[in-house]
Amino acid sequence: MSGFPFDPTYGYSREALLRVGVPDEPDGFGEFWRGRYEDARRVETRPEVGALEEVRDGVRIHEVTFTSVGGVRLGGWLVRPAEGPVRRGFVIGHGYGGRDAPGPAVPLPLPGSAAILPCVRGMETRGRAPGTGTGTGTGIPADAPSHVLHGIRSRETYVLGDCVADLWCAASALRELLPESPAAPLAYLGESLGGGLGALALPWDDRFVCAALTVPTFGNHPLRLTLPCVGSGESVRAYHATHPEVTEVLPYFDAAAAATRIRVPVLVAAADADPSVPPPGQYAVHNGLREDLRTLHPLSAGHMEYAGEERERAQLAAALTEFAGAYM
């Protein structure tokens, strides 16, 4: 685990990681996010299913588009069983860099499942409106270091708030696309960026019955600002150095603070070493969850190649299947 100008464990043992604290939420935290959620639920998502792209692993994978807050039209993939009824649904977030295919999110954890895999605004490839070149028509840059700073001057304009809303609207779109299964339970799965956004989204949306967050970002911003990394957090650290007032905005987007409000079971796959998302921030998200609702799945590392990675990925997939099966 070398090759970086810093130790990707940041000097933390597993025991020390489990003691990482959670920042207090700022004044108006709940009111801010409940308002954002109510706005998102009022959106007419108008989902449209496009071309069939693949049939594999017992599912059919289609293009899909839907509308999110601000009238932004986003895309992604819709996954449905090739045969049989839909008994459950998943909203599956992605990491920074976006996604240009469903990738390892398919096969889904459980049979009889449907899923929507949205690209949040600004992200490759289907979070960018055709012909705009650099965003969704609202000037959102696609590269992670710039995307994470877009609108950061205020909590109302920060892009992460709209990205969370994109996940809520994706859930609405999925429900609309499953009229034959109106009571199907929903779960959220997200990794890295998708993990942090998921933690911010879950406290306010009672449509989700459980979630799994893998190497989640945005946990414990005060601590993150002290830790160098090679991920999007470094861009925020550099911005903070010349704009210290950003500490008035970041607390509203702290995934660890949000985790204290989550009231459904959550599996957190957190890494002991990670050069992109410092492990103390990942564990802060886990530590913020209510003790009786959290399940920890430790990983040796995240966002890097390491010995045993393939084996650990297989173990995580098995753990996700068992976890989701217990609550769906």
Rank of each mutant, 00 (worst) to 15 (best):
D274I: 01
R34F: 12
P216Y: 14
E38H: 01
V159K: 10
G281R: 05
E44W: 03
T260V: 04
R56V: 03
T217G: 09
R87A: 12
D166N: 01
T226R: 15
E234Y: 06
P118G: 07
D162A: 02
R60P: 02
P26Q: 08
L250Y: 12
H94S: 08
D57V: 00
R99G: 07
S113Q: 09
P222I: 01
A324D: 13
I92R: 15
P222M: 05
T295G: 08
Y327D: 09
D162K: 00
E180H: 12
R155Q: 14
S13G: 15
A187Q: 05
R313F: 02
Y327F: 15
R88A: 04
V236E: 14
T157R: 15
S13D: 15
P85D: 13
S181D: 08
I152A: 04
H303R: 08
P182M: 07
H297S: 05
C229R: 02
A259N: 14
G325I: 02
A51Y: 06
P130H: 06
R155I: 00
P109H: 04
A187I: 01
E53R: 12
R121S: 06
V215N: 11
G133F: 08
V266H: 15
D143I: 02
R73F: 06
L78H: 06
F66E: 12
T321Y: 10
E305I: 00
V22R: 11
A51M: 07
R261C: 04
P179C: 03
D274K: 02
G28C: 04
P23K: 06
G288S: 09
G233F: 08
A173D: 09
A259M: 04
A201W: 04
N287T: 05
M328L: 15
R46L: 07
V72A: 13
G3M: 03
E180G: 12
G139C: 07
E38Q: 07
G194L: 03
A284Y: 10
